Amino acid sequence: MVQENGFINSQGKLPLVSFGVISDVQCADIPDGRSFLGVPRYYRHSFLVLQRAVQKWNEKRLKFAINFGDIVDGFCPKDQSLNTFKRIVNEFNLFNGPVHHMIGNHCLYNLPREKLLPILNIPSHDNLAYYEFSPIPQYRFVVLDGFDISAIGWPKDHVKTIKAVNFLKERNPNSDKNCPTGLVGRERRFLMFNGAVGKQQLEWLDRVLQDATKLNQRVVICCHLPLDPHAASNEALLWNYDEVIDLIHRYDCVKVCISGHDHKGGHSVDSHGVHHHVLEAALECPPGSNAFGYIDLFEDRLVLHGTDRMRSREMVFGC
């Protein structure tokens, strides 16, 4: 049975818009396993979690949904990757509204960008995966490409791959660049399964936030990789999270940043009053449990209605 976890209303007001959320489905037709920390992972059951999410979103007649990345696991046999992606995307497409996808590291373990982005219907130029949309005049959503600079997903001889590899060599002394041994505090983010937002994307984000400010829009930033160390593990952070946050803090329009990647979830409010929320992973739901939800947007707050393992939360940010 699907039960909502801690339903919160917002003073009886109707929301401006409502949309579905899910993260880290990481489906694969393989036996259950564990993370490097020993946390159980349910690769086949996560597909059922997605099915229940889509059913719930349709029952609620939500306007759109956002997938926060990693819909196919890196352990998926490579000869099954393409068909597994198509199967998962087809399930998302049963939702009676648009689904906005973003890429995660597990996506890039399976398929190169030139194959991945069309399957996910991500609007792209030069195989970059950042974009924005405005479902209602009062709000703008910005989807960042957290693997813009990355050692995965781009061709090995691509300038972005070379830049990322050199970046990691300078900051991570381990031969296995996914190993944080010897790294201290926030330096532990310098791992190959993370990435960075590049200069061109930062300039684009600056222009978008300028425009949103002129239009008096509130902005929700979406990125697979978390942007605030107080909301996520050091090992899960965007490499240049500080640079992105410094840009966000130049504007008052950004109210909420939502991420995936750090499967346990988390929440914080930063020094400028911006909420940072990390969604719990669908992958780590034992059989019969769920981790998905839907969000009501109001003028002065966002209300997340979580299901089972996805915690509910009301994020008040004022006008």
Rank of each mutant, 00 (worst) to 15 (best):
S268R: 05
S268P: 04
E235Y: 12
E59I: 09
L215C: 06
D300E: 02
Q210K: 13
E170M: 07
R34A: 07
R140C: 13
N240I: 03
D252R: 07
Q217G: 06
G38H: 09
A232T: 14
S10G: 04
V89P: 14
M102T: 05
I88F: 13
K199E: 07
H272M: 15
I245D: 15
L128G: 02
V99R: 04
G97M: 02
D262S: 06
S134G: 09
D32V: 01
K60P: 08
E280C: 06
F141V: 14
P135G: 00
G273E: 00
S289Y: 08
L37G: 04
P155W: 03
H272T: 08
V21G: 03
L144V: 11
Y130R: 03
Q51D: 11
H230T: 11
Q200N: 14
L283V: 01
L82N: 03
T307C: 15
V244P: 12
L37S: 09
P40C: 08
N234C: 12
L191N: 01
T161V: 05
P226A: 04
L283D: 01
E235R: 12
G12Y: 05
P98T: 01
R189M: 13
R52Q: 12
M315K: 10
A291Y: 03
P40R: 02
R188I: 14
H101S: 05
L128E: 14
H249L: 11
L279A: 03
F47D: 04
R189E: 08
A236L: 13
T84K: 14
F92Q: 09
